[in-house]
Every structure is written in structure tokens, then in C-alpha cells.
């Protein structure tokens, strides 16, 4: 599955058109707490989140996230868009809520790309 496929499944809109849509997505992760994302997400996952501040992009950059999907049609502030543009991380907004998105992507075969913290 690549970024383009994810956009189709989540009925999303890409907010930084120069992003690479052929980048492969290896799994999914849904979270609103950034430390939680940093704690568990594996590289090359799509991050579903209800936050839209620039920290989402920073977190994604640190954790090698392949794409960000903002839930419930969130329109991020300009700083977030510019940062995503700068870092080349696809920033997508979807009209669906987090629950719906996790369900749809999981159903489409995108497995969890988080690893338990206390192994």
C-alpha cells in the first residue's frame, strides 16, 4: 500500500502536493499523544491523529513516519503545512473520525505498526 492508496481509503485530501505519493506505507498507528507515538511506532507507518499542531510533523519526522492523516476534516495551521512541506512528509486531511479510519485501514490490510513498550 502506498500514500496514494491511503488517500483513497480515507477519502482524504493531500495538503502538501509536492509530497511523494509512491512512498510505501507498512502499517498504521492512531494516537493523539506524541510521546505515545514516539514510544511505540515503527518506521514507515501512517500516523492517524486528532492533533494538527506543528508538533505532529516534528514527531513524525523524528519517528520516520511515512504519512500523517488528520482526522475529522481538520485544517492544520499554516506552520504545520509549511513544516510538512519542508520535511516532505505527506499531510492528509480526512473527513472521517479516528475510529472509522483505524477500522477502514485495518480492514484494508494495514496492520498495526506499533510495538509494545514493555517487552
Amino acid at each position: 500500500m502506498n500514500v496514494k492508496d491511503v488517500i483513497a481509503i480515507v477519502n482524504g485530501k493531500l495538503l502538501n502536493p509536492s509530497a511523494d505519493l509512491d512512498r510505501e506505507i507498512k502499517g498504521g498507528c492512531g494516537a493523539d499523544l506524541m510521546s505515545d507515538v514516539l514510544a511505540s511506532i515503527q518506521p514507515e507507518a501512517v500516523l492517524l491523529t486528532g492533533l494538527a499542531n506543528p508538533q505532529v510533523v516534528r514527531t513524525a519526522q523524528m519517528a520516520d513516519v511515512a504519512a500523517i492523516v488528520l482526522v475529522r476534516g481538520k485544517q492544520p495551521p499554516q506552520e504545520t503545512r509549511l513544516l510538512a512541506e519542508e520535511e516532505g512528509i505527506p499531510l492528509i486531511t480526512s473527513p472521517y473520525g479516528m475510529f472509522e479510519l483505524c477500522g477502514r485501514l485495518f480492514q484494508a490490510g494495514l496492520k498495526s505498526l506499533e510495538s509494545p513498550v514493555n517487552e
Binding site: 499523544l33 506524541m34 514510544a39 499542531n53
Partner: peptide, 12 residues
Amino acid sequence: ELGFGAGMGLVN
């Protein structure tokens, strides 16, 4: 509400 304070920072 800003997405921080999960209490995972130092653990991470």
C-alpha cells in the same frame, strides 16, 4: 490537549 504529558517522555 496539545498531545503532550502522556508520561512517556523519560521512558522514551
